[in-house]
Design a protein around this nucleic acid. Structure first.
Lengths: 216, 216
DNA sequence: TAGATTGTTAATCGATTAACAATC
DNA sequence: TAGATTGTTAATCGATTAACAATC
């Protein structure tokens, strides 16, 4: 699969396409044109065709796209066929929410283990996932291949924990701690979920609307 | 404050500036140039000056920016001075995580109430926030001004709940349900936290790296 | 076949970067 | 004053949109 020089913007849209295609498949729809897809997603047909053409030719003139086939192409582009493995670091409320509600398996991932320091949690199973003591992290990682660490520890511990993970060989971190990780290594992928950035973005437009109304 | 024609990209960067400035203030740093800020954030000085100049003139030639002043300007731009009020819809693990760990007050927001249908939760306080039964929502909203509803109900309930909220007068939704809300009204602001989109974005680059390595 | 719709090339639009006069 | 750094205008770069030949 070709993956050269594809912009972030395109990659950010791919999961949205996937969700929409799942939805269409669920509705029993088996073909769709870029025009109709554009209408449903609020994008131009041009953009959609451009996006797909970064990765190959998935459609057919005069017909459009086969929903099931396109769904599989995109899921493959996004790496879902690799079945990446994850561990969860920090089993607080957010960790529990992720284990219980996110559905890693449904999204093509395998959550293999969890780590925490709380004696009430260590040794138990949470949503089918065993909770180890954080002190067993190094040992665990030396015996198991883990693709992604999900970081949901208290923020004051976040940066040290992240650097330990990197030291132990982790190459990708899904960061929920709402701080900017400062890592010693730079070949580690980090994807942040910054709740506050998201809420403030919403807040900006609320404020803008208020001030607009006030002025008129 | 001028807010005309400012691109999403700029707005998305503002909360990051704010976080960095908080950080700098915490470190006791009281002035910074666009050059240094750019180094620390991985942006060009030009971009930073362009971004700020969308909203006003916050710096001083030969000096740079006063951290505290800039921090306040940006927090005002993002609407934090309004002290927007929120209610939480759905007090599961994720809801608990938000109440207990997010720190709405620290970010300038007021979480006023929570709603759920679980009899074990209704009537209790969670992190200082009272949990009402969801059936009291309409009544509550008719008596209280609420700016934002935080939606963290199970996904099968999400769309109906969102439309009820809109019907009851809610104008902004912070959506954690990982589905695309299909709302009847179009003057409602929706900001999504799509966990799966974020994880798949990470997954893409992991896969890309694997395939690159495989080819060499 | 005629109509529909793709993939791709070219045109446009917008965002980022560079340059620099103004000035602290 | 000399050096630093802004705010802004102009230049560049990249992303989106439009157009259309190819073809199902």
């Amino acid at each position: 699969m070709k993956r050269a020089n594809i912009s972030n913007n395109v990659i950010r849209r791919m999961p949205r396409y996937l969700r929409k295609l799942d939805d269409l498949a669920y509705q029993g729809i088996d073909r769709i044109s870029s025009g109709e897809l554009g209408r449903q997603l609020g994008l131009t047909p041009s953009q959609i065709r451009q996006d797909f053409s970064c990765f190959g030719e998935f459609g057919q003139q005069g017909y459009g796209y086969n929903v099931q086939k396109l769904r599989e192409e995109i899921s493959s582009i996004l790496g879902m066929k690799h079945g990446f493995s994850l561990i969860l670091i920090g089993v607080g409320n957010l960790g529990h929410a992720l284990v219980n509600n996110f559905g890693f398996e449904n999204h093509g991932f395998h959550l293999e283990a969890a780590f925490d320091v709380d004696p009430a949690l260590v040794g138990t199973d949470v949503g089918g996932v065993h909770v180890f003591h954080s002190s067993e992290l190094l040992d665990y990682l030396s015996r198991n291949k883990v693709d992604i660490a999900v970081l949901s520890v208290p923020r004051r511990l976040a940066n040290n924990m992240a650097n330990s993970l990197v030291e132990y060989g982790i190459k990708a971190i899904w960061n929920f701690t709402n701080i900017e990780l400062d890592l010693k290594s730079d070949d580690v992928l980090v994807e942040n979920i910054h709740f506050s950035d998201s809420l403030l973005y919403l807040s900006y437009y609320l404020a803008a609307r208020l001030e607009e109304d006030g002025e008129n």
